[in-house]
Computed example of a mutant assay.
Amino acid sequence: MKTALLPARPYSWAMKPLTSAQTTFTILPYGSFELRIEHDLIRNVTPDMLLWWFQHIGDTMEHEGATYPRYLIWHPIDHIHWELTRPAPGGGAGVGAHFRIVEAFGGNMDQLVDSTEEVIKLDRNGITLVVRILGKEVYRLAHQFIPVEGGTLYRSRMQVGRESLLGQWLINPIMHQFVFTKAMGQAWLKHNVEEVGNFESFLPELYHTYGILGFSPCLEGFTG
């Protein structure tokens, strides 16, 4: 179980500030949280690069003279572990796969998330992850990729909880007290702005080296 904060990985870029994006945090009528981000332009990154990234997120990469799991470079402070707990029906990290994601927003273990999520959409238009409990969806994170001149517009929407009477009286109070608090929601907005902004600092070169040339060292279910 990878639940301890790791030493920060070296990185040479400045992470984008929260103010670089447009963000909202709304409590919906039945009490679930809705968080939206319209990110700053992801420069020199295409939707095809983003699709390739998520399809190969479990691989390794060379960075600052060492080899790392790619997930640990995507956010070199907050990310702790990524694992493919169930491959897609066709294999790998596609639709139907389950990702285990461990991260601590702001490098703060009080803001720890350790979640296993199902991929229900992954294509050049975006990725969507969900969590279900007893068949009921209680979490959804959708990222949309829109190609524009100079890069990609990246829009994110997270919903934590369920918009129903069951959500209002049982699921949402439990989730928002013990799993994903309001404070964690505010911290996630900053984390995701940084995470998505980091793409433009490493993904074009990584894609040119491994995606276009076709070489992709793999570390399935890595233990970083």
Rank of each mutant, 00 (worst) to 15 (best):
S32T: 03
R43T: 15
L41K: 04
F54W: 14
H39N: 09
V45G: 08
W53F: 13
H56Q: 11
F54N: 12
N44H: 14
V45R: 09
T26R: 09
P29N: 09
E38V: 06
T60M: 06
P29W: 10
L28D: 15
H39A: 03
D59F: 06
N44K: 14
D59M: 08
P29S: 11
L41V: 00
D59Q: 08
M49G: 11
H56K: 11
E62F: 03
R43F: 01
E34P: 06
R43I: 08
D48V: 13
H39M: 01
R43V: 12
N44S: 15
G31F: 07
M61I: 11
V45K: 11
L50Q: 10
L35D: 04
T60K: 06
W52Q: 09
L41C: 01
P29T: 10
V45W: 12
E62G: 05
G31D: 10
W53T: 10
D59P: 03
H63Q: 10
H63F: 12
H39C: 02
F33W: 09
L35S: 06
D48S: 14
E62C: 02
P29V: 10
D40M: 03
L51P: 02
R43H: 10
F54R: 05
I42Y: 01
H63R: 04
M61L: 13
T24A: 15
P29D: 14
L28W: 08
T24Y: 03
L51I: 04
I42H: 01
Q55M: 15
V45D: 13
I37K: 01
V45P: 05
I57H: 12
I57G: 07
T60Q: 06
I27W: 03
T24R: 15
L41W: 04
F54P: 01
Q55S: 15
M49C: 12
R43G: 08
S32L: 03
P47S: 14
H63S: 12
L28T: 14
D48Q: 15
L41A: 00
T46A: 04
I37M: 01
E38H: 08
I57C: 10
I37F: 00
F25G: 01
W52G: 06
G31Y: 09
P29M: 11
T46Q: 07
H39Q: 02
M49N: 12
T46H: 05
F54E: 12
